[in-house]
Amino acid sequence: MDYSIALQLFFSGLNLGSIYTALGLGFFVVYSVTRVLNLAQGEFVMLGGMLVVTFYTKGIPLVPSILLAVVITSLAGAGIYRFIIFPARKFPGMTKVFLTLGCAFIIQGIALHFWGWEFRSLAAFFDTPSIQICGATIFGQTPWVIGATLIMVAGLFVFFGHTIQGKALRACANEPLGARTVGISIERMALFSFALAAGIGAVVGALITPLTMTSYSMGLPLTAKGLLAAFVGGITRVEGVILGGLVYGMIESITAGLIPWGNHNVIALAILVGGLLIRRRGILLTAGKG
């Protein structure tokens, strides 16, 4: 294979991998605190993308648009926890999953009401031009995607590993009774995790809108892909999510480059699902039984 094609595939894989990692992070944040699979995560991504497009086209500069979208989506996430998941906190895990599915329906409906059926798109952030490196073309948005994902990953890494607040969050899922005994409010932590996950989702939405168009119905497919990436790596640890996302991105990019048949999505998904079925606790063997 040509060197430049390999480089091209590598960058495209890195780009996709960053997106899947960032998608998976939202599931990780909620799951590692509350042990809930949040099926509305993809809808947060969609909501974030839509809001950024709306603010940006209204003339608000890009950075404030993104910040506004993140704040609004975080509030939506917190609201969903407070009014829908919190009353069901004693229910079995499956009920909570179905509740988040209900939330996904509601968010989709609201998005359809305000933004209609049309697809929305944005130019690359700050109109960054495409870059040429050794014959490989990198779309202007790619550095932003990779950079933002790196920042989020680093932030979560430090937060969950090295701050009291982050350790308190993890304690909620690992040992709820113990956490309560030492004075951690599990409900407050769960609320925070939903808001954080929604905020991460909104950032992802802003990042991917210039790459793929955003429409009201794109949430559930994104949920499926992000969840798969998170499970493949190991949903209970940041490293697992990064690994899963990167593996997924690379496989999708390589299959897209090598298979002339064109439908690389099928092969990539099949490899991932197959891999997950064989190595059921994720690459890092960290996923629990639950």
């Binding site: 699979l37 499956m94 999953v97 497919p221 969840l227 798969l228 499970f231 079925l277 059921r280 639950g290």
Partner: peptide, 17 residues
């Protein structure tokens, strides 16, 4: 061979597949 909620992720992915 897998239990519980992970099936949600797998069946979603299979539907997409």
């Amino acid at each position: 061979r897998m239990h519980g909620l992970i099936l949600a992720g797998i069946t979603l992915a299979l539907n997409l597949l």
